[in-house]
């Protein structure tokens, strides 16, 4: 934990992955373009291949224990060039686009949803598949956004824990994918892989 913190503080250039995070990289050179700018990924987070994270507008700080699935785009487009902070234990399902101001803990972003740059997400929020959040808003804790009209309701409990899924992925993914070695710049690793 201490190590993570220190790494986050020193993050100021390039792509930083704390030990314990699993970042899959696809086996081609264009893959490096997927991580642009200053990105920090916390312990225990799992990034599937083909995840696009762009920190050109400012830092992107991803916390611990997140699952980020294929084709997810996380894009810092904040107007004040501030840091986009993503909390812990969130799940980003296939194809969602996240440009949120801040994201708390234990949220689920279902497939193909979109969270715009003026939105702040609390804790335990579920954004349903193909739901678009574009208006400036703060989504309160335990909200569920679902359906084609983006209906909102409050759940009683936070979404079920993804710990077992994360454990499964961290066991399976290294068997079939090339992984990004923590604490090394991505360019170097890609070069090693291609050798």
């Amino acid at each position: 934990m201490v190590e993570t913190e220190s790494l986050r503080n020193t993050s100021g250039s390039g792509f930083k992955v704390t030990s314990g995070a699993i970042v899959c990289i696809a086996d081609n050179s264009t893959d490096m373009e997927r991580f642009a700018g200053d990105v920090t990924i916390g312990t225990g987070s799992v990034l599937h291949p083909r995840v696009y994270i762009s920190a050109n507008g400012g830092h992107v700080d991803i916390g611990e224990g997140n699952i980020i699935e294929e084709q997810v785009r996380i894009n810092n487009r904040l107007s004040d060039k501030g840091t986009m902070v993503i909390g812990n234990n969130n799940v980003f399902e296939v194809g969602c686009i996240i440009e949120a101001k801040a994201i708390g803990d234990n949220n689920v972003f279902e497939s193909k949803c979109y969270v715009g740059p003026e939105v702040t997400i609390g804790n335990g929020v579920t954004v349903g598949a193909k739901c678009n959040l574009t208006a400036p808003d703060t989504i309160q804790d335990l909200s569920v956004i679902y359906g084609e009209n983006c209906d909102q309701r409050l759940a009683n409990d936070k979404p079920t824990s993804q710990a077992s899924q994360r454990e499964f992925l961290s066991r399976i993914l290294p068997n079939y994918h090339k992984l990004f070695k923590p604490n090394k710049p991505i360019l170097e690793t890609a070069a090693l892989n291609s050798m």
Binding site: G128, V144, Y146, G147, R153, A155, N156, P159
Partner: peptide
């Protein structure tokens, strides 16, 4: 599983 309603709610 769509709107996360449960009968406990």
């Amino acid at each position: 599983f769509f709107c996360r309603w449960t009968s406990r709610d």
